[in-house]
Amino acid sequence: MAEGTKERILRTALELFAQNGYLGTSMNDIAGQLGITKAALYKHYASKQEILDKIVERMNKMDYERAEAYEMPETEPDGFAEAYLHTPIQKIRTYSLAQFDHWTKEPFSSNFRKMLTLEQYRDSKLAQLHHDYLAGGPLEYMAAIFRKLADSDEEAMQLALEFYGPMYLLYSVYDGAEEKESVSSLLATHIDRFIAKVEAGYRSEAAGTAVLSRRNNG
């Protein structure tokens, strides 16, 4: 029973954080929304910071499990260069669509995203979380994966920006859309066009290399 109560507190607190911001929500607000006393709330969590820490812990666990389920390299780049090199682009497509669903359709993750979007300009620690989960972190992750497609780190980052930039934009588009599935379709189309462009570049490069090789051998 106590475990169920702690879970309900986390989800209710995160809903309030997504609506009013982390800074704009008090322990009194959380207790009131739950219909319990503030003293009862403190029996489960000593502070609002502890609630946030548990939420972040949950998000980290969910990220790890999702990457493992889709056979993606772990998020820490050190020691995983070889794994990045063997990540097929179709696997990246499947994982990216799952990521979008995770951040838009799964209530816990969606509320976490909305909280970070609200607070990114008001609190440095939450700004860092926004960077790690939604902005620079995913961009750097995709750049590491696309490194095998590029001739330099700069080109890999440009590919990652071209790939992830629209995905990041579509999070906000999804929130305000009446036909939400159409937004998911937009993302799928974007990813398919990106893949087609990359594969066309590979074929062109391979053809050019073959022509050059024949000339050199001739």
Rank of each mutant, 00 (worst) to 15 (best):
I30G: 00
A31C: 12
A31K: 00
A31T: 03
G32C: 04
I36M: 09
T37N: 13
K38R: 09
K38Q: 11
A39C: 13
A39G: 11
H44R: 10
H44K: 11
Y45C: 06
Y45W: 06
A46Y: 08
K48C: 03
E50A: 11
E50Y: 08
I51C: 00
I51V: 15
D53Q: 12
K54P: 00
V56H: 01
V56G: 00
E57Y: 09
E57G: 12
E57M: 15
R58H: 08
R58E: 04
R58S: 08
N60T: 07
K61S: 14
K61Y: 14
K61F: 07
D63P: 02
D63R: 10
Y64A: 13
E65C: 14
R66Y: 05
E68L: 12
E68I: 14
A69Y: 10
P73D: 05
E74G: 08
T75C: 06
E76I: 08
E76D: 05
P77E: 12
P77W: 04
G79D: 06
G79N: 07
G79E: 12
G79S: 14
F80K: 03
A81Y: 15
E82G: 10
E82L: 13
Y84E: 13
H86S: 15
P88V: 10
P88G: 12
I89R: 03
I89W: 00
Q90P: 02
Q90F: 11
K91Q: 15
R93K: 14
S96Y: 03
Q99G: 09
Q99N: 06
F100S: 01
F100V: 03
D101Y: 07
D101S: 15
D101G: 10
H102I: 05
H102F: 11
W103N: 02
T104C: 06
K105T: 06
E106I: 04
